[in-house]
Computed example of a mutant assay.
Amino acid sequence: MSTLFVADIHLCAREPAITAGFLHFLRARAIAAQALYILGDLFKVWVGDDDPNPLHHEIAVALQALTQRGIPCYFIHGNRDFLLGKRYAAACGITLLIAPQVMFLNGLRIVILHGDALCTDDNDYQRFRRWMHQRCLQRLFLSLPLWLRLRIADRMRANSLRANSGKTTGIMDVNAQAVIAAMDDTDSTVMIHGHTHQPAIHQLPGKRCRAVLGAWCHHGSIVEVSTSGVILHEFRFNG
């Protein structure tokens, strides 16, 4: 059996085709997997487990159906849904993991993470990342009224889009030395991550490889680990 990895689905009510594609993936592909790992940014924005958005309930029901069939599902936070908490995880039946996470599959020692921590050339983003991961600030944000959290999230997203428009692709990509350091620290031979939206499998020195998941937009992106190795798949939502 195969273990599947996805990231950067960016679910939101304004993109029903992506939602339909992800739900189809859960029913048609993930159901036959040994396990499913979601490596962050499942949702386009997450302002708290108390948000009554119907889409959140729909996805929770679908993930719960998967885990109740005996397919374990694991989740690593991304830069958009780092506030997803234990309450929603319990509703989904998923297990929250702390990145970087090391696992063993088919004789491979694999490290998994969202990937934004590897983009060390983007100094502005790394400063923002350190700020938004402070527990005291997270608790303060979650204590605000839901309408205000949604408004702040919209403003932050608009600011991020403006800031990224002035950055080169190289700055927003992973740093090669950061990748090697992370693999050395975890003694891993395979790294799987998302975030950069540049799907590929990169061969690295020392018989290592780095598998990068693509963002779900007009098609889905999966990394499959099986006895055949590490394979990147892309598929149309209606396929």
Rank of each mutant, 00 (worst) to 15 (best):
Ser2Tyr: 02
Thr3Lys: 05
Leu4Phe: 09
Phe5Cys: 03
Val6Met: 03
Ile9Ala: 08
His10Arg: 06
Glu15Met: 12
Pro16His: 03
Ile18Pro: 02
Ala20Glu: 14
Leu23Gln: 02
His24Phe: 10
Phe25Asp: 01
Ala28Val: 09
Ala33His: 01
Gln34Leu: 06
Leu36Arg: 04
Tyr37Cys: 02
Ile38Arg: 00
Ile38Gly: 04
Leu42Tyr: 00
Phe43Asp: 07
Pro52Trp: 00
Asn53Lys: 10
His56Glu: 02
His56Gly: 01
Ile59Ser: 02
Ala60Tyr: 03
Ala62Pro: 09
Leu66Met: 10
Leu66His: 09
Arg69Thr: 06
Arg69Lys: 08
Asp81Trp: 00
Leu84Ser: 06
Arg87Asn: 15
Tyr88Ile: 10
Ala89Leu: 13
Ala90Gln: 12
Ala91Tyr: 08
Gly93His: 00
Ala99Leu: 00
Pro100Val: 07
Leu105Gln: 08
Asn106Ile: 12
Asn106Trp: 15
Leu108Tyr: 13
Arg109Ile: 09
Arg109Tyr: 03
Val111Ile: 12
Leu113Trp: 01
Leu113Gln: 03
Gly115Gln: 01
Asp116Gln: 04
Asp116Ile: 11
Ala117Thr: 14
Leu118Phe: 15
Leu118Gln: 00
Asp121Pro: 03
Gln126Ser: 11
Arg129Phe: 09
His133Val: 14
Arg135Ala: 15
Leu137Thr: 04
Gln138Ile: 09
Arg139Gln: 14
Phe141Gln: 00
Leu142Val: 04
Ser143Lys: 09
Trp147Asp: 12
Leu148Arg: 11
Arg149Ser: 01
Leu150Arg: 08
Arg151Asn: 13
Arg151Ser: 11
Ala153Gly: 05
Asp154Cys: 14
Met156Glu: 14
Asn159Leu: 13
Asn159Glu: 15
Asn159Ala: 14
Leu161Arg: 10
Leu161Glu: 11
Leu161Ser: 07
Arg162Ile: 10
Arg162Ser: 11
Ser165Cys: 14
Gly166Arg: 08
Gly166Met: 06
Gly166Lys: 11
Gly166Val: 07
Thr169His: 05
Met172Arg: 13
Asp173Cys: 01
Val174Met: 05
Gln177Trp: 07
Ile180Asn: 06
Met183Trp: 04
Asp187Pro: 07
Gly194Pro: 11
His195Asp: 12
His202Lys: 07
Gln203Trp: 12
Pro205Asp: 03
Gly206Val: 13
Lys207Phe: 04
Arg208Glu: 13
Arg208Gln: 10
Arg210His: 14
Leu213Asp: 08
Gly214Ala: 04
Gly214Asp: 08
Ala215Asn: 09
His218Gly: 06
His219Gln: 15
His233Ile: 08
